[in-house]
Amino acid sequence: MSGARILAVDDEPQIRRALRRTLEGHGYEVRTAGTGDEALRALPWRPDVILLDLMLPDLDGLAVARRVREQSTVPIIVISVRGEEDRKVQALDVGCDDYITKPFGMDELLARIRVALRHAAGQTVAPVVQANDLRIDFERRLVTRGGDEIHLTPTEYDVLKYLVQHAGKVVTHRMLLQQVWGAEHLDETQYLHVFMSQLRRKLEPHPARPQYILTEPGVGYRFRSPV
């Protein structure tokens, strides 16, 4: 058990109670906050992960995220609801690390928390990443599936590399465009759709039902975390 500290920020007392009960059961140390102000006041407690609902009675959740980022790089997982895609993307763009959509199951939440903790621990990506029969060797710039080499264009390789470096976390369209194509192409999401479809055709056994590169509708993509 990690015993990591989790700050859960949600305006609904019932959700706070459920989060506290379940996360404590998993050995985490939990503090809860019902308002943005309380959340900011809890920062000196030095949480390892913040779960942040965007809908708060006082400060906007986005404002809270910005204020947290001014003083800390603690991973922030946004708790959102369907239909809030715009705000979700904004939250990720101001530096939140991931999001989870209500109503969520505990397995999903725990998996997100583990990924966030792993990334925060600064675990650099191993030189070789293996996910099922897919193998990516960053040192040799070599991608193979079931032993067969897959030929990727330089851009396809860059996209894949960025996704794998953030395995398990959501990567927004903007983040990918900025990273691979540069700041002047931030709005050209059609690039991404084209390259993703090419990449999936090369990597995925069933490109229509991808198991490596998952779509986060309206937000971006997520490389399934290798187990």
């Binding site: 959700i15 109670r17 459920a18 009960r21 379940t22 059961g25 109503p103």
Partner: peptide, 26 residues
Amino acid sequence: SHDLRTPLSSIRMAATALLQQDVRWQ
């Protein structure tokens, strides 16, 4: 939908927690 989702979320969280096999809840 906001009002319905909140109790749904607590229910789902509590139920999935109880269903987890790797924890022995007190």
